[in-house]
Design a protein around this nucleic acid. Structure first.
Length: 437
DNA sequence: TCTGGGGTCCTAGGACCC
DNA sequence: TCTGGGGTCCTAGGACCC
């Protein structure tokens, strides 16, 4: 008998790599297996990825590295600066492979994606095992697979797949009796649910909603009234009613970003307007490059600066300024001029600045550029120059060509004391890796 | 001594328009 | 002293995610 489309049970899978950054490092250095390994954020500041062995040492996610440094001596903790060139390339390979397992894929972050398994008539759990085996064999990356009727349930299933060894890395709610489902949900803290963060968790606990099961059966009208539609959707999704659709990254291509931020902490604090201007100029160039990559222009630019908020005894100052552009643009030179005018306005003498950044807003496609009667049209010329600049920087490395304002010394640049070579993207560094051995 | 860098969505409130 | 009703757009801020 022919079944109506709606009779198909929607099925989502969430696949993510375990300890992705650490796993990437391990692919190229197998001696790291079974050892406590962490990868650090920019400036070697925080711990952003931990191997299981590192987690077992009690190292928390996101803690400042200096709090764990003593474990290098005492427990042989191994650490790396982050190498986003390597992780980005490994991610692209993983997503290409995973995309081949389903007609539709949503790439959700650098290390996870949703697959649409709706209507695929096979045992979802064993299909999940196949996906894991292939990713391990072809890329060397360990993964976990969660399956459910909604994205929220797939996320939660992924949590179980990861935490409970008896499931062998794959968990499917649909292979679960309803009673068993509630029993499992009663064992999971409400804070593990996708969309429930620290704040919401606290407020929910105050209402005696402490487990996933509690939230699943919570009074919808009350949730709506207290927390709005976002959490109301989450409750529906926990009950198997799909409210969040798969956003088809494969077909529609990369979505245009609505805001672009380029901001970094400085390797060491800086005090002068000259240095600050150089940093801001360089961040603006980076942001403008991202803007051109998605073929957009922006109408507003925000510049912000701040001192080190963790230094209690130090004088604090933080400020930002939003600047409109006369004509929307993606020209590094024009954006840079505006950004520098902003930094001059908010700069104050006598502070140790630790961080600065640039945010681009009012982003729309370059084809929609609104002319200005009083400004001669220089767009054609500008886009040619920018094209050449992007091309050279892509071919010969970042900052081959940059504005004089960005400075040549750049002693404010980030620290990255232990970055591994770019094994997969640079022949020269592959040779270097061999020489190191 | 040392504390990341991106993004998203939703809501409330004000400005402005008819 | 009286002072509409609705709509749109923008911004700031709060929450979340990785």
């Amino acid at each position: 008998m022919l079944q109506p489309l709606s009779a198909l049970r929607p099925t989502f899978a969430l696949i993510d790599a375990n300890n992705f950054y650490v796993s990437c490092e391990r692919v190229f250095n197998p001696q790291l297996e079974k050892k406590p390994v962490v990868v650090l954020s920019n400036n070697d500041g925080c711990i952003v990825a931990r191997s299981q062995e590192a987690k077992d040492l009690g190292i928390g996610m996101g803690i400042p590295f200096f709090q764990a440094k003593h474990l290098i001596q005492s427990h042989g903790l191994i650490w790396f600066s982050s190498n986003y060139t390597l992780y980005g390339d490994m991610s692209a390979r993983m997503m290409a492979l995973l995309g081949s397992f389903a007609p539709r894929q949503e790439i959700y972050s650098i290390d996870e994606c949703f697959l649409d398994l709706t209507g695929m008539h096979r045992d979802a759990v064993s299909y999940g095992q196949t996906i894991r085996r292939c990713t391990r064999r072809y890329l060397g990356l360990p993964t976990s697979v969660g399956i459910g009727k909604t994205k929220t349930l797939a996320k939660l299933a992924n949590h179980l797949a990861k935490k409970r060894v008896q499931y062998g890395g794959v968990f499917d709610w649909q292979a679960c009796e309803p009673l068993m489902e509630d029993c499992l949900m009663a064992q999971i803290d409400v804070g593990e649910i996708w969309g429930v963060g620290k704040r919401l968790r606290m407020q929910l606990r105050a209402m005696a909603i402490t487990t996933c099961r509690d939230l699943k059966y919570a009074q919808v009208s009350l949730i709506r009234q207290r927390f709005g539609v976002v959490l109301e959707r989450t409750v529906a999704e926990l009950n198997g009613l799909a409210c969040l659709a798969l956003e088809d990254t494969q077909i529609s291509g990369e979505k245009r970003k609505q805001q672009i931020i380029s901001s970094k902490s400085f390797g060491q604090a800086i005090t002068t307007l000259t240095d600050l201007s150089a940093a801001v100029s360089s961040y603006t160039a980076r942001a403008a490059e991202k803007l051109r990559q998605q073929d957009s222009i922006c109408s507003h630019l925000v510049v912000f600066i701040q001192t080190n908020s963790f230094a209690d005894q130090q004088k604090q100052y933080a400020n930002s300024i939003t600047l409109p552009l006369v004509v929307a643009s993606n020209d590094t030179r024009r954006l840079s001029q505006v950004a520098l005018r902003g930094i001059e306005k908010i700069y104050r003498l006598g502070y140790n600045y630790k961080k600065a950044g640039v945010m681009l807003l009012g982003i729309h496609p370059a084809t929609q550029q609104q002319g200005n009667l009083f400004v001669a049209d220089q767009h054609q010329h500008a886009s040619k120059v920018m094209h050449v600049m992007d091309h050279l920087n892509q071919k010969y490395g970042a900052n081959t060509l940059s504005l004089a304002g960005a400075g040549l010394q750049q002693h404010w640049r980030m620290q990255a004391a232990q970055r591994t070579p770019n094994y997969t993207t640079a022949w020269a560094e592959l040779a270097q890796a061999r020489a190191d051995r």
